[in-house]
Design a binder for these strands. Structure first.
Lengths: 144, 144
DNA sequence: TAGTAAAATCTCAAATCCGAGATAACTTAA
DNA sequence: TTAAGTTATCTCGGATTTGAGATTTTACTA
């Protein structure tokens, strides 16, 4: 088995594993009336603070038109509001509302339990290895 | 940083890395008029042989209605045809056509080069580690 | 054997996503 | 300062995905 073949295999395994995790997330956050993208955006705002719309797209890796759509939905649900930036009037921040923060305060501990189950078979070292390896792969992939 | 927190981090890193790879795949296979799902299905049939429709869904991890849609598209493009199973008349196989096989003969080597770039910073051992770790995570995730 | 449960595929409507292009605001260079 | 180029956001149309439910076939059980 040559090098290139191993990498095609790695590609497949990453995609399958991530899709399986996506599915776990989908089912979990559906209990709170969210889809995975909405959860990702709320999670970003919760942990990283208010973000310009386009920064959300870069972090969550979705297209600009999708961000508009998702932020619309989250705004309808009152979890997020738009706030113009005075210094640069092109920029609009997505801001977590009190309701949004309260929701995430509730979701995240429950969600952590679900994710813990998924990584159950890995010890702490292996979890960290996974993080380090995939960080490097992810960075490389983003630069095409 | 506690255990649960590391796992939430691992979750995020896996999802980001896989989405970045998805994007690389999207751009690459777009050159051949395919989307990532269509490529995944063709890749499955190419490497694993003809498959019942529902088996494709399990392997590629998409819903039953999506498989119908994707196989329709691939059938329109003449890369795949449906073939009923005589033993169990509920089952329909997706079969790679000569054109489909020829296309994959062409795509896969090119595609391997693109993927190789993504894993450029990892040595052979690290690629294998990634595969092993994610296999275990993926299996666990599939069983909810 | 008859009747019920389960499995495989498909249909349909609604939700979500992307690409291309429009608009407004900022930046840079002549 | 002006003109051209860049950036951030949004709009719109079309493609893809999902969930719920219908249909057909098989498996199981009384």
């Amino acid at each position: 088995m040559g090098r290139a073949s191993d990498e095609l295999k790695a590609e497949t395994v990453i995609l399958r594993a991530s899709q399986a995790i996506q599915e776990v997330i989908r089912k979990d956050v559906a209990n709170y009336g969210l889809n995975p993208t909405e959860y990702s955006v709320l999670e970003l705002l919760y942990h990283m603070g208010d973000q310009p719309i386009q920064m959300i797209g870069k972090k969550v890796l979705i297209s600009s038109s999708s961000i508009t759509y998702v932020v619309d939905k989250l705004e309808q649900k009152k979890y997020v509001r738009r706030q113009g930036c005075p210094e640069d009037r092109r920029v609009i921040y997505a801001v977590l509302t009190g309701e949004g923060k309260a929701l995430m305060d509730e979701i995240i501990p429950q969600h952590a339990i679900k994710i813990e189950e998924v990584f159950n078979d890995l010890n702490a070292d292996e979890v960290n290895q996974t993080i380090e390896l995939l960080k490097r792969v992810g960075c490389k992939a983003i630069n095409n």
